[in-house]
């Protein structure tokens, strides 16, 4: 009988503990693809200051708008209007200081020049585009001066990256000196735009010419 009483008490105590469910507070996770967030939280798509998209309370979510400064580069919707990033010499890298911003069918163009062939263990041209996972993924293409696509960006996010961002890279080892362009747009093929509700994103762009 004593054993039974103890068992019942243990069961009741256990039942009380069962009430413990996952408890997830706001601002503890970055939004995942398709603005995925824990239940009762929503993706802060309007976070234009920290370059991240965090899971917050639904009432904290602002409508997404491109920051004012991102409009400075516009119009850059075609090759002729590309923003000139200047020369990218051997071993150098240039970074688009401000974040870029894409909404819907917007397309951004950047232009850079490789002044000379580079020597080194592994000389190459490399462009890296970094953007939050929470909104629509972006696509990047490397074009020559004639507008032909030379390379298409591929995901190159470091596995240890825990910043809630994705990276895509364009890398080319046979790029002769000349002028080139990068075309950035939403990646419709990725099919992760929250069914059209998050067809936008921020990005950072780095163009480099590493030799090792």
């Amino acid at each position: 009988m004593e054993l039974l009483v103890r068992t019942i008490l243990l069961s009741l105590v256990s039942l009380m503990l069962v009430q413990c469910k996952p408890d997830i507070s706001r601002n503890t996770y970055f939004c995942g693809p398709d603005s995925l967030c824990p239940p009762n939280l929503a993706c802060q798509v309007g976070d234009n200051e920290s370059f991240t998209f965090n899971c917050v309370l639904p009432r904290e979510v602002d409508a997404f708008t491109c920051p004012e400064f991102t409009a400075d580069a516009e119009p850059d919707d075609n090759a002729e209007q590309a923003r000139d990033m200047g020369d990218v010499g051997c071993g150098e890298q240039v970074q688009f200081q401000n974040w870029g911003c894409i909404i819907d069918d917007d397309v951004d163009h950047f232009q850079f020049t490789r002044p000379s062939d580079c020597n080194g263990a592994d000389p190459r041209a490399k462009a890296t585009l970094r953007f939050p996972l929470g909104a629509s993924p972006l696509a990047m293409e490397l074009l020559n001066e004639a507008g032909e696509v030379l390379s298409t960006g591929e995901i190159c996010t470091d596995q240890q990256d825990s910043t809630g961002t994705e990276q895509i890279c364009v890398e080319n080892r046979d790029l002769p000196p000349g002028t080139y362009r990068l075309r950035i747009s939403l990646d419709d093929a990725a099919n992760a735009d929250c069914d059209g509700a998050c067809r936008f994103n921020h990005y950072q762009l780095v163009i480099a010419s590493p030799v090792i």
Partner: peptide, 8 residues
């Protein structure tokens, strides 16, 4: 912040 991305 967990510095993690909420994923599937």
């Amino acid at each position: 912040h967990t510095l993690k991305t909420w994923n599937q």
